[in-house]
């Protein structure tokens, strides 16, 4: 991948033209990979995923200092930006009750066919094999679209403890999934 901003030294007739060009370059570099990645998080809702990518690119453009980072770090950061936009969207959609509460891990159905179903089973298995403390904070934060503060209140433990358990739980989960060859 070529450096994102290295070829932006040229002269532009206006600030608007430069902004347009920078956004176009960001789309070219990251738009496709972001869309592929985010579609999985929107349940293959392509329109929603495209909106998320667009918003992510605009936010990235507003934080142009970060675009001096190495591409793999820019990518990781863009994913966090996109993730928060998806979560905001899920929260807005949460008036539809069946989308609020994900099923308990133990109750996940085993769907037929697709590789995607296999991945879900592998991820559910990995989650189950974590310690209770680690699984609990992952379920009560990310899987239910709750912040650390909200989960801490529900679990009756300090936010710092939730953060710490989440850190070790997510690291453990990553190791398990890497061993099983599940891609992100």
């Amino acid at each position: 991948m070529c450096p994102v901003l290295s070829h932006l030294d040229g002269r532009f007739e206006s600030a608007d033209a430069e902004a347009e060009h920078r956004i176009a370059v960001l789309y070219q570099e990251f738009g496709g990979p972001l869309l592929r990645h985010i579609r999985k998080s929107t349940g293959n809702d392509l329109q929603w995923a495209e909106d998320v990518v667009q918003e992510t690119i605009v936010r990235a453009w507003r934080n142009s200092a970060r675009l001096q980072w190495e591409p793999s770090l820019i990518w990781a950061w863009l994913l966090t930006v996109a993730r928060r936009i998806v979560i905001d969207g899920r929260r807005r959609k949460s008036v539809r009750p069946h989308e609020v509460e994900p099923p308990e891990v133990d109750m996940l159905a085993v769907p037929d066919g697709a590789d995607r179903a296999l991945s879900a089973i592998v991820v559910a298995d990995a989650l189950r094999s974590l310690s209770e403390e680690h699984r609990e904070v992952i379920e009560q934060t990310y899987l239910r679209d709750r912040t650390i503060s909200e989960a801490a209140e529900i679990l009756g433990i300090p936010p710092g403890t939730v953060k710490s358990r989440l850190y070790y739980g997510i690291r453990a989960l990553r190791e398990l999934l890497r061993d099983k060859g599940v891609a992100g």
Partner: peptide, 8 residues
């Protein structure tokens, strides 16, 4: 990792 959890 969040994308992997989204499988669920």
């Amino acid at each position: 990792v969040p994308g992997q959890l989204d499988e669920l």
